[in-house]
Amino acid sequence: MRRYPTPRRRLRAPGVGTVLKWVLLGAAALVMLVPLYIMVINAFKPQEAIISSPLAIGPDTFSLEYLQAALTSEKFNVVRAYGVTLLFVALVNVFGIALAAPVAYVIARGRSRWHLGLLLLFVSGLFIPGQVTLIPVVFVLRVLGLINTIPGFILFETAATLPVTIFLFAAYLRTVPRDIDEAAALDGAGKIRAFWACIFPIMRPVVATIVVLNSISVWNDFVSPQIILGPGSGIYTVTTGVYAAVGEFSTDYTTVFPTLLLAVTPAILFFVLMQRHIIGGLVAGATKG
Protein backbone atom coordinates (compact mmCIF):
# COMPACT_ATOMS: atom_id res chain seq x y z
CA MET A 1 0.00 0.00 0.00
CA ARG A 2 1.23 3.40 -0.88
CA ARG A 3 0.85 6.07 1.74
CA TYR A 4 0.15 9.57 0.59
CA PRO A 5 2.02 12.25 2.46
CA THR A 6 -0.02 14.60 4.58
CA PRO A 7 0.35 18.27 3.67
CA ARG A 8 2.47 18.87 6.75
CA ARG A 9 4.89 16.14 5.79
CA ARG A 10 5.17 17.48 2.26
CA LEU A 11 6.66 20.67 3.63
CA ARG A 12 9.60 18.80 5.10
CA ALA A 13 10.15 15.75 2.93
CA PRO A 14 11.34 16.47 -0.60
CA GLY A 15 8.79 15.79 -3.32
CA VAL A 16 9.04 13.03 -5.89
CA GLY A 17 10.16 15.60 -8.45
CA THR A 18 13.03 16.79 -6.29
CA VAL A 19 14.19 13.24 -5.58
CA LEU A 20 14.02 12.38 -9.28
CA LYS A 21 15.93 15.56 -10.14
CA TRP A 22 18.79 14.75 -7.78
CA VAL A 23 18.93 11.11 -8.86
CA LEU A 24 19.24 12.32 -12.43
CA LEU A 25 21.85 14.94 -11.58
CA GLY A 26 23.76 12.43 -9.50
CA ALA A 27 23.87 9.96 -12.39
CA ALA A 28 25.02 12.70 -14.77
CA ALA A 29 27.66 13.81 -12.26
CA LEU A 30 28.97 10.21 -12.16
CA VAL A 31 29.32 10.22 -15.95
CA MET A 32 31.37 13.41 -15.63
CA LEU A 33 33.56 12.24 -12.75
CA VAL A 34 34.23 8.58 -13.54
CA PRO A 35 36.61 9.39 -16.44
CA LEU A 36 38.61 11.65 -14.13
CA TYR A 37 38.65 8.92 -11.48
CA ILE A 38 39.75 6.33 -14.03
CA MET A 39 42.56 8.56 -15.21
CA VAL A 40 43.81 9.22 -11.69
CA ILE A 41 43.76 5.68 -10.28
CA ASN A 42 45.04 3.99 -13.44
CA ALA A 43 48.10 6.22 -13.45
CA PHE A 44 49.31 4.06 -10.53
CA LYS A 45 48.61 0.57 -11.89
CA PRO A 46 50.26 -1.94 -14.22
CA GLN A 47 48.77 -2.67 -17.65
CA GLU A 48 47.05 -5.97 -16.70
CA ALA A 49 45.37 -4.38 -13.68
CA ILE A 50 44.17 -1.43 -15.78
CA ILE A 51 42.53 -3.75 -18.28
CA SER A 52 41.10 -6.31 -15.86
CA SER A 53 39.70 -3.92 -13.26
CA PRO A 54 39.68 -0.31 -14.47
CA LEU A 55 37.69 1.02 -11.51
CA ALA A 56 39.56 -0.69 -8.69
CA ILE A 57 42.76 0.16 -6.92
CA GLY A 58 44.36 -1.85 -4.16
CA PRO A 59 47.64 -1.93 -2.26
CA ASP A 60 48.74 -4.99 -4.26
CA THR A 61 48.69 -3.20 -7.61
CA PHE A 62 49.46 0.37 -6.51
CA SER A 63 52.78 1.66 -7.77
CA LEU A 64 54.41 5.01 -8.29
CA GLU A 65 56.81 3.71 -10.92
CA TYR A 66 54.61 4.60 -13.93
CA LEU A 67 54.09 8.16 -12.82
CA GLN A 68 57.80 8.45 -12.18
CA ALA A 69 58.56 6.99 -15.61
CA ALA A 70 56.24 9.54 -17.22
CA LEU A 71 57.87 12.34 -15.23
CA THR A 72 61.33 11.34 -16.37
CA SER A 73 60.39 10.17 -19.88
CA GLU A 74 62.95 11.02 -22.52
CA LYS A 75 60.27 11.33 -25.19
CA PHE A 76 58.35 14.02 -23.36
CA ASN A 77 59.92 16.11 -20.63
CA VAL A 78 56.79 17.12 -18.72
CA VAL A 79 58.50 19.48 -16.32
CA ARG A 80 60.17 21.31 -19.18
CA ALA A 81 56.86 21.45 -21.06
CA TYR A 82 55.19 23.00 -18.00
CA GLY A 83 57.88 25.66 -17.99
CA VAL A 84 57.75 26.29 -21.74
CA THR A 85 53.94 26.49 -21.78
CA LEU A 86 53.85 28.75 -18.72
CA LEU A 87 56.43 31.01 -20.36
CA PHE A 88 54.28 31.18 -23.51
CA VAL A 89 51.18 31.91 -21.43
CA ALA A 90 53.00 34.73 -19.63
CA LEU A 91 54.50 36.24 -22.78
CA VAL A 92 51.22 36.15 -24.70
CA ASN A 93 49.43 37.76 -21.77
CA VAL A 94 52.01 40.52 -21.39
CA PHE A 95 52.27 41.32 -25.11
CA GLY A 96 48.56 40.92 -25.76
CA ILE A 97 47.60 43.28 -22.95
CA ALA A 98 50.39 45.76 -23.72
CA LEU A 99 49.18 45.96 -27.33
CA ALA A 100 45.45 45.84 -26.71
CA ALA A 101 45.05 48.21 -23.74
CA PRO A 102 46.29 51.43 -25.41
CA VAL A 103 44.48 50.81 -28.68
CA ALA A 104 41.28 50.00 -26.78
CA TYR A 105 41.72 53.31 -24.92
CA VAL A 106 42.12 55.22 -28.18
CA ILE A 107 39.00 53.50 -29.55
CA ALA A 108 36.95 54.07 -26.40
CA ARG A 109 37.83 57.77 -26.24
CA GLY A 110 37.72 58.49 -29.96
CA ARG A 111 34.65 60.01 -31.51
CA SER A 112 35.44 59.82 -35.22
CA ARG A 113 34.43 57.24 -37.79
CA TRP A 114 38.04 56.08 -37.87
CA HIS A 115 37.82 54.88 -34.31
CA LEU A 116 34.63 52.93 -34.97
CA GLY A 117 36.24 51.47 -38.08
CA LEU A 118 39.24 50.42 -36.02
CA LEU A 119 36.97 48.64 -33.52
CA LEU A 120 35.11 46.88 -36.33
CA LEU A 121 38.42 45.81 -37.87
CA PHE A 122 39.53 44.11 -34.66
CA VAL A 123 36.11 42.64 -33.92
CA SER A 124 36.03 41.07 -37.39
CA GLY A 125 38.87 38.91 -36.07
CA LEU A 126 36.37 37.20 -33.77
CA PHE A 127 34.75 35.61 -36.80
CA ILE A 128 37.90 34.42 -38.54
CA PRO A 129 38.68 30.88 -37.37
CA GLY A 130 42.34 30.44 -36.49
CA GLN A 131 42.56 27.29 -38.60
CA VAL A 132 41.63 29.29 -41.70
CA THR A 133 44.43 31.79 -41.30
CA LEU A 134 46.98 29.24 -40.13
CA ILE A 135 48.13 28.25 -43.62
CA PRO A 136 48.77 31.81 -44.82
CA VAL A 137 50.23 32.67 -41.40
CA VAL A 138 52.82 29.98 -42.09
CA PHE A 139 53.50 31.77 -45.36
CA VAL A 140 53.85 35.17 -43.64
CA LEU A 141 56.08 33.74 -40.90
CA ARG A 142 58.23 32.03 -43.51
CA VAL A 143 58.67 35.33 -45.32
CA LEU A 144 59.51 37.03 -42.01
CA GLY A 145 61.92 34.22 -41.16
CA LEU A 146 60.00 33.46 -37.97
CA ILE A 147 58.60 30.02 -38.78
CA ASN A 148 59.60 27.31 -36.25
CA THR A 149 60.69 29.98 -33.79
CA ILE A 150 59.32 31.07 -30.42
CA PRO A 151 58.94 34.75 -31.48
CA GLY A 152 56.88 33.62 -34.48
CA PHE A 153 54.64 31.53 -32.27
CA ILE A 154 54.24 34.31 -29.68
CA LEU A 155 53.44 36.78 -32.46
CA PHE A 156 50.64 34.57 -33.79
CA GLU A 157 49.19 33.72 -30.38
CA THR A 158 49.33 37.36 -29.30
CA ALA A 159 47.50 38.45 -32.43
CA ALA A 160 44.92 35.74 -31.83
CA THR A 161 44.10 37.21 -28.40
CA LEU A 162 43.66 40.78 -29.71
CA PRO A 163 40.03 40.72 -30.93
CA VAL A 164 38.45 39.55 -27.65
CA THR A 165 40.88 41.57 -25.53
CA ILE A 166 40.34 44.83 -27.41
CA PHE A 167 36.59 44.33 -27.48
CA LEU A 168 36.31 43.73 -23.73
CA PHE A 169 38.82 46.48 -22.88
CA ALA A 170 37.05 49.08 -25.04
CA ALA A 171 33.67 48.12 -23.56
CA TYR A 172 35.11 48.51 -20.07
CA LEU A 173 36.91 51.79 -20.80
CA ARG A 174 33.65 53.35 -22.03
CA THR A 175 32.41 53.00 -18.43
CA VAL A 176 35.48 54.80 -17.02
CA PRO A 177 34.64 58.52 -16.62
CA ARG A 178 36.60 60.99 -18.72
CA ASP A 179 37.24 63.08 -15.59
CA ILE A 180 40.11 60.76 -14.82
CA ASP A 181 41.79 61.51 -18.17
CA GLU A 182 41.42 65.18 -17.49
CA ALA A 183 42.78 64.93 -13.96
CA ALA A 184 45.81 63.11 -15.35
CA ALA A 185 46.26 65.75 -18.04
CA LEU A 186 46.16 68.46 -15.35
CA ASP A 187 49.06 66.78 -13.62
CA GLY A 188 50.98 67.39 -16.80
CA ALA A 189 51.40 63.76 -17.75
CA GLY A 190 51.57 63.04 -21.48
CA LYS A 191 48.66 61.09 -22.95
CA ILE A 192 50.54 57.81 -23.09
CA ARG A 193 51.99 58.12 -19.59
CA ALA A 194 48.63 59.23 -18.25
CA PHE A 195 47.06 56.10 -19.69
CA TRP A 196 49.49 53.66 -18.12
CA ALA A 197 49.74 55.52 -14.82
CA CYS A 198 46.12 56.49 -14.24
CA ILE A 199 43.76 54.53 -16.47
CA PHE A 200 45.37 51.10 -16.75
CA PRO A 201 45.33 50.46 -12.96
CA ILE A 202 41.56 51.04 -12.99
CA MET A 203 41.19 48.28 -15.60
CA ARG A 204 42.24 45.58 -13.16
CA PRO A 205 38.95 43.58 -13.20
CA VAL A 206 38.77 43.35 -16.97
CA VAL A 207 42.50 42.63 -17.20
CA ALA A 208 41.96 39.72 -14.78
CA THR A 209 39.17 38.39 -16.99
CA ILE A 210 41.37 38.59 -20.06
CA VAL A 211 44.34 36.94 -18.34
CA VAL A 212 42.10 34.02 -17.37
CA LEU A 213 40.65 33.64 -20.88
CA ASN A 214 43.99 33.99 -22.67
CA SER A 215 45.80 31.68 -20.28
CA ILE A 216 43.30 28.87 -20.83
CA SER A 217 43.35 29.26 -24.60
CA VAL A 218 47.15 29.39 -24.88
CA TRP A 219 47.65 26.53 -22.41
CA ASN A 220 45.20 24.29 -24.29
CA ASP A 221 46.15 25.27 -27.83
CA PHE A 222 47.47 22.36 -29.82
CA VAL A 223 47.29 23.18 -33.53
CA SER A 224 49.23 26.45 -33.52
CA PRO A 225 52.26 25.21 -31.57
CA GLN A 226 52.20 21.96 -33.54
CA ILE A 227 52.24 23.78 -36.89
CA ILE A 228 54.19 26.96 -36.11
CA LEU A 229 56.81 25.51 -33.76
CA GLY A 230 56.78 22.13 -35.46
CA PRO A 231 58.21 18.89 -34.08
CA GLY A 232 61.55 19.78 -35.70
CA SER A 233 62.06 22.76 -33.39
CA GLY A 234 62.34 20.47 -30.35
CA ILE A 235 60.13 22.87 -28.38
CA TYR A 236 57.16 21.11 -26.85
CA THR A 237 54.21 22.61 -25.04
CA VAL A 238 52.11 20.40 -22.77
CA THR A 239 49.69 19.56 -25.59
CA THR A 240 52.22 18.93 -28.37
CA GLY A 241 54.32 16.96 -25.88
CA VAL A 242 51.35 14.78 -24.92
CA TYR A 243 50.70 14.20 -28.59
CA ALA A 244 54.31 13.18 -29.16
CA ALA A 245 54.34 10.89 -26.10
CA VAL A 246 50.87 9.33 -26.26
CA GLY A 247 50.06 9.52 -29.97
CA GLU A 248 52.09 6.46 -30.91
CA PHE A 249 51.67 4.42 -27.72
CA SER A 250 47.96 4.80 -27.20
CA THR A 251 47.50 1.16 -26.17
CA ASP A 252 50.26 1.25 -23.56
CA TYR A 253 48.05 2.52 -20.76
CA THR A 254 50.92 2.67 -18.30
CA THR A 255 52.20 5.55 -20.45
CA VAL A 256 48.83 7.03 -21.41
CA PHE A 257 47.24 7.53 -17.98
CA PRO A 258 50.26 8.92 -16.08
CA THR A 259 51.07 11.30 -18.98
CA LEU A 260 47.48 12.54 -19.18
CA LEU A 261 47.34 12.92 -15.40
CA LEU A 262 50.48 15.04 -15.43
CA ALA A 263 49.18 17.14 -18.33
CA VAL A 264 45.80 17.75 -16.71
CA THR A 265 46.87 18.47 -13.13
CA PRO A 266 47.93 22.14 -13.61
CA ALA A 267 44.71 22.92 -15.53
CA ILE A 268 42.57 21.32 -12.82
CA LEU A 269 44.45 23.15 -10.06
CA PHE A 270 44.06 26.44 -11.91
CA PHE A 271 40.37 25.70 -12.31
CA VAL A 272 39.85 24.88 -8.65
CA LEU A 273 41.67 28.04 -7.52
CA MET A 274 40.21 30.41 -10.10
CA GLN A 275 36.79 28.89 -10.72
CA ARG A 276 34.80 32.04 -10.07
CA HIS A 277 37.04 34.16 -12.31
CA ILE A 278 37.05 31.55 -15.07
CA ILE A 279 33.28 31.24 -15.17
CA GLY A 280 32.75 34.99 -14.83
CA GLY A 281 35.32 35.63 -17.55
CA LEU A 282 33.79 33.14 -19.96
CA VAL A 283 30.32 34.57 -19.45
CA ALA A 284 31.61 38.11 -19.98
CA GLY A 285 33.63 37.09 -23.03
CA ALA A 286 30.75 35.21 -24.65
CA THR A 287 27.84 37.50 -23.93
CA LYS A 288 29.58 40.81 -24.57
CA GLY A 289 31.24 39.44 -27.68
Partner: peptide
Protein backbone atom coordinates in the same frame (compact mmCIF):
# COMPACT_ATOMS: atom_id res chain seq x y z
CA UNK B 1 49.18 53.77 -28.82
CA UNK B 2 47.20 52.14 -31.58
CA UNK B 3 49.85 51.49 -34.20
CA UNK B 4 51.58 48.37 -32.85
CA UNK B 5 48.32 46.50 -32.28
CA UNK B 6 47.08 47.42 -35.75
CA UNK B 7 50.36 46.26 -37.33
CA UNK B 8 50.35 42.91 -35.51
CA UNK B 9 46.70 42.39 -36.34
CA UNK B 10 47.20 43.22 -40.00
CA UNK B 11 50.20 40.91 -40.26
CA UNK B 12 48.59 37.93 -38.51
CA UNK B 13 44.89 38.30 -39.45
CA UNK B 14 44.02 40.57 -42.33
CA UNK B 15 46.98 39.92 -44.63
CA UNK B 16 46.72 36.13 -44.04
CA UNK B 17 43.00 36.21 -44.78
CA UNK B 18 43.61 37.75 -48.19
CA UNK B 19 46.65 35.53 -48.67
Amino acid sequence: MGGPAVLVFLAMFIVPMFL
